[in-house]
Design a protein around this nucleic acid. Sequence first.
DNA 1: ATAGGCGCCTGCTGGC
DNA 2: TGCCAGCAGGCGCCTA
Length: 278
Amino acid sequence: MPELPEVETVVRELRPRLTGRYIVSVRAGRKALRRRWSPVWAAALNGRRIDAAERRGKWIVLHCDDGARLVIHLGMTGQLFVAPADAPRQPHTHLVFGLNDGTEELRFRDVRRFGSATLFPDRAALETFFTQSGLGPEPFDLDPAFWRARLLATDRCLKAALLDQRLVAGVGNIYADESLYEARLHPTRRGRDTRPAEAERLRKAIVVVLTRAIEKRGSSIRDYIGGTGRKGGYQEEFRVYGRTGAPCRRCGAPIERIRLAGRSTHFCPQCQGSGSRE
DNA sequence: ATAGGCGCCTGCTGGC
DNA sequence: TGCCAGCAGGCGCCTA
């Protein structure tokens, strides 16, 4: 589900609701997430004040007043939101953090359990984790020379390159397709066959598409909700994603769908040229 | 090292 | 109506 715009929206909406508040209780479900939740973390978090909420790629990072970092990934179906403490707890709610004054709680729901929640003791430990996983730069401060060099060095197709979090952090299946359409580049084009000007076009397209999506508070296909429980609106703006057979908004040709890098991939066969260098 | 494929989970949809 | 294959916004592990 959630790619950069959705995670950014969650963080922006959680920030004013969490900053300065204390965690007064921690409850964890029994079912395992992608990374196992440790009871030790619950004890460590109890009584801590949340000082900041930020995003790195698709990761949500909450800062505690003792320097610890609570790091959450939403996987495909994760939801992190503040709810009234007396609201019914929905199925698949795996973590519940009580907030001080007792009227509200932070809840983590995840139907498919591809998401995770992990506590790092300090900033350095978190940075080590990101470094070891090879997490790439944020798209908004992606150095053009770095991007061009990495893209032109790979044998993979552009779609696969965009999904690789080591090249650029935060792009997933929806925004990869939308960015390639915006850049008028075919998803099967090889990175190695890309011209420098095309690489730069793609870099700019990613920024444009992600910025637009954040303005619309992300995309809600089925599961996604923001930090206040509201859905996003960018699904109304899709040019190619989920529009198989529908007319291209630019040229009218039917949008095509293929399987690429193991993911469904949508593109306009007219506007996005061919899979090989022209 | 790099690229492709599979598996992890649950729920929903569409075709028969 | 009922069943089942196929599909879903992510990522880590395995293999070649």
